[in-house]
Design a protein around this nucleic acid. Structure first.
Length: 480
RNA sequence: CGGGGUGUAGCGCAGCCCGGUUUAGCGCGCCUGCUUUGGGAGCAGGAGGUCGGAGGUUCGAAUCCUCUCACCCCGACCA
């Protein structure tokens, strides 16, 4: 058991923080609520960026960059938007030692600055669609912050598209939600539930919001990505009009969608254990670490020489690895060190293995060792393991979610279940804000989404709260 | 903003209640050397703090008083 990490059973919240700090993913900054993303953490983000960026490009999007400072007047143009975001904005009031004529908001999201720009770019239906994404940092002055899950400044990507008609825009909204779901499941090995947000949970300024929701190991929900249909709200606010084929002036239709470094938090909470971080191989920069074992200097030379062969087989398969030849640590120390950092596979090699012309493979997810792997098969066996780990993590997370997803029809049972064992409670809801609010107040569970999945949604029934007719089930859970 | 907690060496802490034998101590880490190395090594030597900040009480303050700052955890708000 790792000495520096609080167990999940003892204190889940502390466990999470311990993982982040001990795996060297992030550190606290001098400014409250901000975080320093360390190389280990940033490497995960770079992997996520690379995979997502490719998916965005494959769906026809281009990257651009808009400024971090937004004139106050822009922020105030869309009523719901201002109301939603104003309380959590940081505002620049002084520049060059002088009070500014107009205050500048540090972006909490970029709809306003982008749509004010689109007004200049969009004249004709021929200018549409515009499919732009940007990788950026965002400032939201949150009351309570947690490393990766909710920080004052965070990194994300935000897609902002403009379309000539509603169906096309709505198609974009669901296309990008699917991209997020695919990314979560394939790369983070995180099963997600796709669905629509309720009115009270939707994005400020949107017609509707769709999202992906995932279950963490403490059975709480984490919203992992959102895609918004903004209709003509922002086009109206920023006067973005175009002439359609019939020569009529029309307002453009908008979408926006984003995922953030919060996904790193999701990755941690979904897979890691009491020994430290567990990285899904597809998001691990270093896939394998070689730990050589020796007694004498003579042995050291022999083992390190043997390691070169191993390295050859890894390079052959294009596996990024690290050789831990540090002299000041014993093997045991190195084992736990790399386990803490979540490296998927460890290759152990000492005199005994060399005698057999073999290596020992260790997999991080199950903590199991396999002895006597023939040296020349190292590359292919590691590849196989990486694949297996990736699949295993996904399946484990999926089974866990199934185990703690309950179809509940009785409010008393609901109240009991949400406390113990917790999880996703799938129940009928009459769609009234009152019932939604009541559940929130009485149980602290919120409606995570109205699921698209038919098995979850089911058919009509009676609202779990008021008993009135309900069109289908929704997913309730306590959330981050 | 409400509740709780903490600021003493790079990290984790003790000392504070009952001011003075403390030149402020312990563990981890760090440096040097030797022995070690298949699950977080051992011994020896060494470097490193003025006790969050300001003011006050006192012959004397890490310790008592006042003010202040910061951070962490739990809630209300949120990706």
């Amino acid at each position: 058991m790792a000495e520096n990490i609080t167990s999940r059973a003892e204190d889940y919240s502390k466990w999470y923080t311990d993982i982040v700090l001990n795996a060297k993913l992030a550190d606290y900054s001098p400014v409250k609520g901000c975080m320093i993303i360390r190389p280990n953490g940033y490497a995960i983000w770079e992997k996520m960026q690379a995979a997502l960026d490719k998916m965005f490009k494959d769906t026809g999007h281009e990257n651009a960059y808009f400024p971090i400072m937004i004139p106050e007047s822009f922020m105030k143009k869309e009523a719901e938007h201002v109301e939603g975001f104003s309380p959590e904005c940081a505002i620049v009031t002084i520049g060059g030692g002088k009070e500014l004529e107009e205050r500048l908001y540090l972006r909490p999201t970029s709809e306003t600055i982008i749509w004010s720009t689109y007004a200049k770019w969009i004249m004709s239906y021929r200018d549409l669609p515009i499919l732009i994404n940007q990788w950026a940092n965002i400032i939201r002055w949150e009351m309570r912050t947690r490393l990766f899950l909710r920080t004052t400044e965070f990194l994300w990507q935000e897609g902002h598209t403009a379309h000539s008609n509603a169906p096309e825009a709505e198609e974009e909204v669901s296309r990008m939600l699917n991209v997020y779901a695919e990314f979560a499941e394939k790369f983070i090995a995180l099963p997600v539930i796709k669905g629509k947000k309720t009115e009270s949970e939707k994005f400020a300024g949107a017609i509707y919001t769709v999202c992906i929701e995932a279950m963490m190991q403490d059975r709480k929900a984490l919203q992992s990505g959102t895609s918004h249909y903004l209709g003509q709200n922002f086009a109206k606010a920023f006067d973005v009009t175009f002439l359609n084929q019939s020569g009529e002036r029309e307002l453009a239709y908008a979408t926006s969608w984003g995922v953030s470094t919060r996904l790193i938090g999701a990755l941690i909470m979904a897979h890691s254990d009491d020994n430290g971080l567990v990285l899904p191989p597809k998001l691990a920069t270093v896939k394998a670490v070689i730990v050589p074992i020796w007694k004498s200097d003579e042995e050291r030379n022999i083992v390190l020489e043997y390691c070169k062969k191993i390295e050859g087989y890894l390079k052959e398969k294009d596996i990024n690895y690290k050789l831990d030849d540090r002299d000041q640590y014993k093997p045991g120390y190195k084992f736990s060190d790399w386990e803490m950092q979540g490296i998927p596979v460890r290759i152990e090699v000492g005199p005994k293995d060399i005698q057999k012309n073999a290596v020992v493979l260790f997999r991080r997810d199950t903590m199991k060792k396999e002895f006597g792997i023939p040296l020349e098969k190292t590359g292919e066996e590691v590849l196989k393991l990486l694949d297996d780990i990736q699949n295993n993590l996904f399946n484990k997370a999926l089974e866990f979610r199934k185990e703690f997803t309950f179809f509940v029809n009785d409010y008393e049972e609901f109240k009991k279940k949400i406390e113990d064992p917790g999880g996703f409670l799938v129940s009928h809801w009459c769609e009234s804000p009152e019932c939604e609010e009541k559940v929130k107040e009485e149980t602290k569970a919120s409606i995570r989404c109205i699921p698209f999945d038919e098995e979850l949604r089911g058919s009509d029934g009676k609202c779990i709260v008021c008993g009135k007719p309900a069109p289908g089930r929704v997913v309730f859970a306590k959330a981050y």
